[in-house]
Amino acid sequence: MTTLSLAAKAPLIDYASLVASAFVNTGTDNQITLDFQDVKELEKDITVSVSKDEKVVASNIDNVLNFFAEEYPQVIIGKEEAQEWIKFAKDELTVKDFKKLSVSLEKLESHLNFRSFIVGFKFSLSDIAVWGVLRANPLMGSVIKNSVYINVTRWYQFLESDKRFGAVVELMTKSIAEIRKLAKQQSTGGKKEGHKA
């Protein structure tokens, strides 16, 4: 059994790994179990990890994404080309300084001048890595809303409309809300009866 564990209180939630697992779950016979934990980190400096039969086989974004690409190359394509984009995403798109982020978004904007996907003509690991990191960046909400970068916005929203991207992130958000509600009920001694929809 393969499990993806994610720290939901991490400063940047690793949506890319979550999206990658959705590609596996919808495109192969394999099922990756999702394990959301309401913590800042799973272990010291680790916010995401994959375990196989209870043994951790990969941790943190690049290792986890590369693990998925190696194990499921039929659905997570373009591992080799994705390395520079994973690095770009990690180094340049996690920043919370708007000026710095703008410089990197300009690069992505011009890369997407004549491209619908980051690499080639279908979803690949590069799209997953870059979208996942941007989705976690709190600055992106207003960037997308205001279409500051026309190509980035088109590409970002196109990916979001695919259930392996947008819906999976929503699923995580809902699951976390549920976990927090349960925790709150327990801490208040279960006096308040939670209502189930």
Binding site: E109, F114, R115, N146
Partner: peptide, 13 residues
């Protein structure tokens, strides 16, 4: 053929 790296000016909304 598309010249993917053609340096076109950035578009402003």
């Amino acid at each position: 053929t598309v010249n993917y790296s053609a340096e076109v000016p950035r578009e402003i909304k």
